[in-house]
Design a protein around this nucleic acid. Structure first.
Lengths: 226, 226
DNA sequence: CCGTTATTATGAAATTTTTATAAAGATTAG
DNA sequence: CTAATCTTTATAAAAATTTCATAATAACGG
């Protein structure tokens, strides 16, 4: 059960977040100020921090800086809450290493989806075997974001790479377009189905004589020929 | 084809939603007031409700409460429409179990994407654990949408696959043509009986020496030899 | 059995659905 | 700003589904 710390000076927001995150299986603790959470961070590290940007006293940005400056804390993922998009520009501009952010008002689903996405990303980071994937003459180097075809390096875009990696992790499995979109772009990024067709087409072109390795299952999706 | 009820007191909004949802393959009915849709809900349940929050008479929030209080209706997902974010705070605060919301003005893409997302989430919940089905030398992999015959992978079309899966779930059981059509294409899709014969023929061809496994029960239907 | 009628099998055409592809538009990174 | 990438759109092409016509088989009453 992943542990999440929520820092916000508005009691109502703290409550909404707490209730809903708990309902989704997270272990949640809330704090009304940056100072409070800093005390707690000295004791236990959560898997994720959710910070309001605007707070009286030390605000979310300063807290973030504080955390990023600490060797023991700097790897904790941070999700920012913000009421104004202007504030968000600041976050992005400052390169504070926010893992994601969300604007108020937000839907519970959006929140949960983003939390899940962050934690999943983290897991993937830890889990992804830095091992080389091979399928016929195609060799994929997960950590190098690159592939070779019959020993020749081939350039793929990020999206093409992620799709191919997905396929090579589960050769023979069929992925629906929605599966592919979710897995490549994260949930709640909204792209229409046809987009996948285009990526598949571009990928096939680059695969040269292996282009038939990607099979179309009409009415269902795509996958590597098992 | 998922059924969606739209409730909004503005005619223009109703029309926009209806046209665009229909274009995306949804079966849409619109209602100008909470009272109207309540009458209809007594008769048929939709797969999703889209409610405007602000309406004269009973508003969206009250309607939502009404639905959540009903045993037969409480599981219907609800997507709220709202012009003001202040209203949305209310939705979130009240814990009405909104599945998502969208603020006016909204883009059609966003709307469609959210609708799809809600329905997809629902599906996942309902999906049954997928086990491999076996019948003699035929092995069917539900999640891979594929089969092997004596270890050799065989390509089936989606329809052929679904028919074979239906049969293999209940070997020995006889399915009428109507059973098969309903189970494969959903109710209220009208195709003539003979269509099934053709699918069965094509399926038998692909089953090779197992083609006799599908037995014809003259005057009744088809099924796997028990 | 036999003829008669009902039902199913089959090939092929017609229709519909789905996918491939090119090209334009939008977005993002540098 | 420019170039690369991603997304959308429009249309062509392919695949799948459905219908239809006809041959083959099964069911049934005598």
């Amino acid at each position: 059960m992943p542990k999440i710390y929520v820092v916000d000076d508005e009691k109502d927001i703290r409550e909404i977040l707490k209730v809903n995150l708990q309902k989704n299986g997270y272990d949640v603790a809330t704090f009304a100020s940056a100072e409070e959470v800093i005390k707690q961070l000295a004791i236990t590290k959560p898997d994720l921090l959710i910070l309001d940007i605007m707070m009286s006293g030390m605000d979310g940005l300063d807290l973030c800086k504080h955390i990023r400056a600490s060797n023991t804390l700097k790897d904790i993922p941070i999700l920012f809450l913000s009421a104004k998009s202007a504030e968000l520009d600041k976050v992005l501009g400052l390169e504070l290493g926010a893992d994601d952010y969300i604007t108020k008002p937000f839907s519970i689903h959006e929140l949960i989806a983003r939390v899940k996405a962050i934690l999943r990303r983290l897991q993937v980071k830890e889990e992804t075997p830095k091992e080389v994937l091979t399928y016929k003459g195609i060799v994929l180097y997960p950590e190098k974001f690159s592939i070779t075809i019959d020993k020749n390096p081939i350039d793929l875009t990020k999206t093409e790479f992620l799709i191919l990696k997905l396929f090579m992790q589960y050769p023979g499995k069929i992925f629906s377009r929605d599966n592919i979109i979710d897995s490549i772009r994260g949930d709640n990024v909204y792209v229409i189905d046809r987009t996948v067709d285009v990526h598949i087409m571009n990928l096939r072109k680059k695969l040269g004589h292996y282009k038939d390795a990607i099979k179309t299952y009409s009415g269902v999706g795509y996958g590597l020929k098992g």
